[in-house]
Design a protein around this nucleic acid. Structure first.
Lengths: 113, 113
DNA sequence: TAACTATTTAGCTGATTGGTTAATTAGTTT
DNA sequence: AAACTAATTAACCAATCAGCTAAATAGTTA
């Protein structure tokens, strides 16, 4: 991404945007174990099917999940396992970040008043 | 991130949210080569210093960059190089995604009417 | 101190978006 | 065809946010 036109940065940002939403992450997390249909995901997440359906449409459009219609239900599953690699990387970064801020809090706590 | 409480997913989402903005990605990209002060970054990005300053505050808060006040200027540099690893991963995913959609467009184009 | 430069913060505005309910579409079953 | 179930789409609302200008803060220099 060294010499990248601003236009391309918009695509990268849009990609990150898909992952920047707790409900969508929750859905991805659920799909990690196995495929699910919309109703199941809605129940597990505690939101309406309409809402989850919209999230799934977005994630499909960006190639995170794939859609398969079976009977009256529609099943979704992960399209690209590398998402989890990404999430694990981020979790590691957050953990480090958390540790850093915990350390500086500790420094404040032990500092002489 | 297998068995992750919903609360933690909010943190992960917030982390991705920081990267889900073209201007912030542009700033990170500029800082890849060397540190810059706010005015420089504003000029290079074509936005006001006020705007860039707010983006930098957010990125500092999330540990992406570090702030160093020198003279009347404030210089920022990357705090954690692993951000670029993340971005490169995403770029690869987008490229693959692009290729897939190019292929399916080609299939449509050659399909008999 | 006063004047000057750089950064940050406050306040505003328009655009985007996650949630909802209601209406529509698609597929199954009687 | 009619009734039923599941998913999607439309329309709405509240909240968030990126941009701006203007005001406030911090540091340097005359």
């Amino acid at each position: 991404m060294e010499q990248m036109p601003v236009e391309a940065l918009k695509d990268v940002a849009a990609y990150f945007q898909v992952l920047a939403e707790p409900t969508r992450l929750q859905v991805l997390n659920l799909l990690r174990k196995q495929e699910h249909n919309v109703g199941e995901l809605a129940g597990l997440c505690g939101f309406t099917a309409a809402n989850i359906s919209r999230h799934l449409a977005l994630m499909t459009q960006h190639g995170f999940v794939v859609r398969e219609s079976r009977g009256t239900s529609v099943y979704y599953r992960i399209a690209d396992e590398s998402v989890y690699e990404l999430c694990d990387l981020v979790c590691g970064n957050i953990a480090r970040q958390f540790e850093r801020s915990a350390l500086s809090r500790a420094a404040f706590a032990t500092a002489p008043k």
